[in-house]
Design a binder for these strands. Structure first.
Length: 499
RNA sequence: GACCCCAUCGUCUAGAGGUUAGGACACUGGCCUUUCACGCCGGCAACACGGGUUCGAUCCCCGUUGGGGUCGCCA
């Protein structure tokens, strides 16, 4: 028997900052491919027209390159099975969608979003395990065709069996069973003509000859839909391997609200890519001699997918920092380290940005050191007293910081202008003078009451570092109790409801 | 709520029927040292619970509990 060529892929959707979870999946997929002299493919899953952006794609590509996880095929570099951006593969998907409809495995659905929301609501209340009532499933094909041709808006749904059980194999967990009755007639083509993830992923993985799907556990529940599509098309499904999810301290899925999750944050904080990769490698996997520091090469040489352990690992920044320190101490000459440092933050481009906002308040060159240390120092020290402003106690300041944090999370572009607008609006809504609002922020962001302009500083530091610092300040103030947090969330939602 | 997944120190993990349950981070005691850090030596600390199977269960099976995930024209 000739072994099938091992081909793995990373399939991120370009809808935000590059996420460490993406890096985690990339690492395991990459290592598995390299271990087997296979190929690692990057495919951009930009089927969400609303949220996908080219900037995000670039950021993801950049951060993967920074990590040193290079792909063999992908957008820009191409490959035999391209294009590697799903938005450029629309005709391909249509061909397969049409085929499913023609063969009676899929059907147009004319239900409005409003109706679907209603139905979903009712069914959920009634305890039904699926959200759609399959209203359009039985429309006679001729009638459906007529309605489509008449220009009525529609989506396409796949016909999921009404009864029976889907059994599939996960490499790490063995057989998994799920009743078909618990699965919706999944939409495979949206009203805008774009495929949904489920259709696109199956078609592409097949066409791109992917041998192993290595991705996060959150996908397990949709595997039956995928398996069904493979069956409809008469294709052999690849091996499914669902990685455990990286977790916050409270064990929930790693999230922006509770942790820095952007690869960019780690980069800007001064984590070395080799240390981050190493650390990610020890989440759920280990070397047989239990050595904790290992290179990507060592990981490749010793890696076996089946050795991955399944408990969701908590992402522990302290341990990452310890590991990073070992790299700095053990692997760098002073000369090499200097190069790294320059590359990281001591370069002209970065200095220029900072100098630009310092110049006006410098009286001698050595002011530089004190004035800018918050750009190079991750552990800025803050005192509780300084965070407290005019007649407000810890709780009040905490509440303000928390609401600002929530607001900042919603910002898509982290520029000084957008941050300023956000604060301005915030101060109006809460009826607090802007300068009182920004006062504790100066301390939180720079550690100093007198410092470089707040919004410029935040822009240079970036969203993740800024938010992390605000969180640290809140910790210094004693944080909010669960109860108070809930109350605050209500108040916040009423004040800042978007719709 | 329904369904799916998971379960060893606070955290990352080793263990694959018989171990004083091992290592690492964190915490901590000491040594080294002009301070700190590093390094070295030590300490604290875990098999969720209940039934089976077995001469014997952390390990196998079942249940309970706990945690997580999914229930979108988002991925």
């Amino acid at each position: 028997m000739t072994a099938k060529k091992i081909r793995t892929r990373l399939a991120p959707s370009p809808t935000g900052d590059p996420h460490v979870g993406t890096a985690y999946q990339a690492l395991f997929g990459y290592v598995w491919a390299k271990k087997n002299n296979g190929s690692f493919i990057l495919r951009i899953e930009d089927t969400d027209k609303e949220r996908s952006t080219p900037e995000s794609e670039r950021a993801i590509v950049d951060s993967l390159k920074w990590l040193g996880l290079e792909w063999d095929e992908g957008p820009e570099i191409g490959g035999t099975y391209g294009p590697y951006r799903q938005s450029e593969r629309l005709e391909i998907y249509h061909e397969y969608i049409n085929r499913l409809v023609a063969e009676g495995h899929a059907y147009p659905c004319f239900c409005s979003r409003e109706r679907l929301a209603e139905v979903r609501n009712e069914r959920q209340k009634a305890g039904a395990s699926s959200g759609y009532d399959r209203k359009c499933r039985d429309i006679p094909p001729e009638e459906a065709t007529k309605r489509v041709e008449a220009g009525e808006e529609f989506t396409v749904r796949m016909k999921v069996p009404l009864e029976g059980t889907c059994v599939f194999e996960d490499l790490l967990r063995g057989e998994i069973e799920k009743d078909w009755a618990s699965i919706d007639d999944q939409v495979i083509m949206k009203a805008d003509g774009f495929p949904t993830y489920h259709l696109a992923v199956v078609v592409d993985d097949h066409l791109m000859k992917i041998s192993h799907i290595i991705r996060g556990e959150e996908w397990i529940n949709s595997v039956p839909k995928h398996v069904l599509l493979y069956e409809f098309f008469g294709w052999e499904p690849p091996v499914f391997c669902h990685l455990p999810l990286l977790r916050n301290k409270d064990k929930s899925k790693l999230s922006k609200r509770k942790n820095p999750v952007s690869i960019d944050w780690y980069r800007k904080t001064g984590i070395l890519p080799e240390a981050l990769l190493n650390y990610l490698g020890m989440m759920g996997w280990h070397l047989s001699d239990d050595r904790e520091k290992f290179s990507l090469h060592e990981m490749i040489d010793n890696f076996r997918l089946e050795d991955i352990s399944l408990g969701g690992p908590v992402f522990d920044l302290d341990k990452l920092l310890w590991l990073n320190g070992r790299y700095i101490r053990e692997d760098f000459s002073t000369d090499d380290l200097l190069d790294r440092l320059v590359e990281w933050g001591l370069n002209r481009e970065h200095f220029e940005k900072i100098l630009d906002i310092c110049k006006g308040r410098m009286s001698c060159l050595s002011d530089w050191g004190d004035m800018t240390n918050h750009f190079f120092n991750n552990n800025i020290s803050l005192s509780k007293d300084e965070l407290l402003i005019k007649n407000r106690d810890e709780t009040e300041i905490c509440e303000i910081l928390q609401m600002i944090l929530w607001e900042l999370e919603k910002l898509d572009r982290f520029t000084k202008e957008s941050i300023y607008l956000l604060f301005k609006e915030f101060s109006e809504k809460l009826d607090i003078k802007l300068k009182y609002l920004t006062q504790p922020l100066y301390i939180a962001i720079s550690g100093k009451a007198v410092s470089t302009p707040l919004f410029d500083t935040m822009e240079i530091l970036g969203s993740d570092i800024s938010r992390m610092r605000i969180r640290s300040a809140m910790e210094e103030l004693g944080n909010l109790s669960g109860k108070k947090l809930k109350k605050l969330e209500k108040k916040y939602n009423s004040l800042f409801a978007d719709i």
